[in-house]
Amino acid sequence: MDSAYQDNATRELACGLGFVPVVPPNPRRRQPWEYDKPLYRRRNGIERLFRRLKAWRRVFTRYDKLDLMYAAFVTVALIAEALR
């Protein structure tokens, strides 16, 4: 769930499917809800990691034909990002 989808119907649907929405409410919202700030911080870190992985053109366009080679290059990209 993203901040663009923060209406009540979407939140109820996500909760009904067993998901825990961790999106902060819009500051101008009349009835803001509570959210888990440490969990949102972790979610934000994971989203940033995926954004950095997409910067690797080979990962983003999936040049490799074999799943094993693709997974190996994703591992190399993760190691390079961790060393950065």
Rank of each mutant, 00 (worst) to 15 (best):
P38G: 00
A4W: 06
N8A: 09
D7W: 04
N26G: 04
T75A: 13
F73S: 03
L49R: 14
L49T: 14
K54N: 08
F60H: 06
D7G: 05
G16V: 05
N26F: 00
P32G: 01
R58H: 08
K65T: 15
P32E: 01
A55D: 03
P38Y: 00
M69Q: 15
P24W: 00
L68C: 11
A72C: 12
L49Q: 14
Q6V: 00
R29D: 05
V76E: 09
Y70K: 12
R43P: 03
Y35K: 01
R43F: 07
R11D: 09
E12L: 07
W56I: 09
Y63D: 04
V20M: 06
N44T: 10
L68I: 11
N8D: 08
L49K: 13
Q6L: 06
R51T: 11
A80E: 15
L66C: 10
R30E: 03
R84F: 14
M1I: 04
Y70H: 09
I46K: 06
Y40T: 08
M69A: 15
L39M: 13
I79Y: 08
L66W: 13
W33E: 07
M1D: 15
V59H: 01
V22M: 00
G45T: 11
E12Y: 07
T61G: 10
V20P: 05
R52Y: 07
D7I: 11
R52D: 15
P21Q: 05
V74F: 06
D64K: 13
M69C: 15
L39H: 06
R30C: 04
R42E: 14
N8I: 08
T10I: 07
L78Y: 06
R57A: 01
R84T: 06
K37C: 07
T61R: 15
N44M: 12
V74N: 11
K54E: 10
Q31L: 05
L17E: 04
V23G: 02
F50L: 06
A55T: 06
P24T: 02
D64A: 07
P27W: 00
D64I: 10
N8L: 14
L66Y: 14
F19M: 07
V76I: 12
V59G: 01
L78F: 02
D64R: 11
R62M: 12
V22H: 04
A4C: 14
L83G: 02
L17H: 13
L78H: 03
V74Q: 06
V76L: 13
M1T: 15
P25H: 10
P38F: 00
W33Y: 02
P25Q: 01
L83P: 02
L49M: 06
L13I: 09
E12T: 04
A77L: 09
R28H: 01
T61F: 10
E12K: 08
Y35M: 05
A4D: 15
P32S: 00
L49V: 12
P21E: 02
R48K: 10
N8Q: 15
M1W: 08
L66M: 13
L39K: 13
Y5F: 14
